[in-house]
Amino acid sequence: MTESTLTSQALEAGGTGEVMITLEGVEKWFDDFQALRGIDLVVGRQETVVICGPSGSGKSTLIRCVNRLEEHDRGRIVVDGTELSDDVRDIQEIRRETGMVFQSFNLFPHLTIMENITLAPRHVRHKPKKDAEETAMKLLERVKIPEQAHKYPGQLSGGQQQRAAIARTLAMEPKVILFDEPTSALDPEMIKEVLDTMEELAESGMTMMCVTHEMGFARAVADRVVFMSDGGIVEVNDPESLFTDPQEERTQLFLSQIL
């Protein structure tokens, strides 16, 4: 695919008509094993892209390349005009602007929820403590757990922890948030509260790349769904078309298994 078709694809699909993330011919090897093959993808500003696919297809690897938790071996990754290079300053720049929410929450267990949320604003953005705490309180209200501010992560339920982790990410005012199976470690009754938070985020205009198996969420919230298999993108389409009328055989097979 050429850059222009990629771009127009993203712009048609929603968003604001501006490009936020560009992936061009991205390849990644773990030793001899190729985990990503020729990934071309453009994510528009304020767009929500859901990535799905079978286990081991490279979904996590793909989004982890965007903020350099994994290093890609070939191709280009550009986030909001900054190209990911070996220059530490570029990496730091992109990490400051890109939030990530993990399957296992990864809150810092030795800090209170408030400290978890204010840590990066204070130490990366050099915000005064008071400002950071005010913002944190607002964010906790937004994710509906203001009463947990002064507890430690270990005292919260899984769903509350994940919402605190989302608040921690939002505190950096990121331009993009990457989600790696944010609800997979949760009990069923807690999944909804996290998905609701994510839906609210998407509606507020956040640019999001979500790896998730929650097809209901994808249908309701995603602008586009990317289907991956064996390290490559098989099919990209709006959720309605992809789920009801998949073009590729592998997509059909996958959907028949999970739906």
Partner: peptide
């Protein structure tokens, strides 16, 4: 995961 969370927040 602790390292990854710290990195992804942009901490040096």
């Amino acid at each position: 995961g602790q390292w990854e969370a710290a990195k992804s927040l942009g901490l040096s």
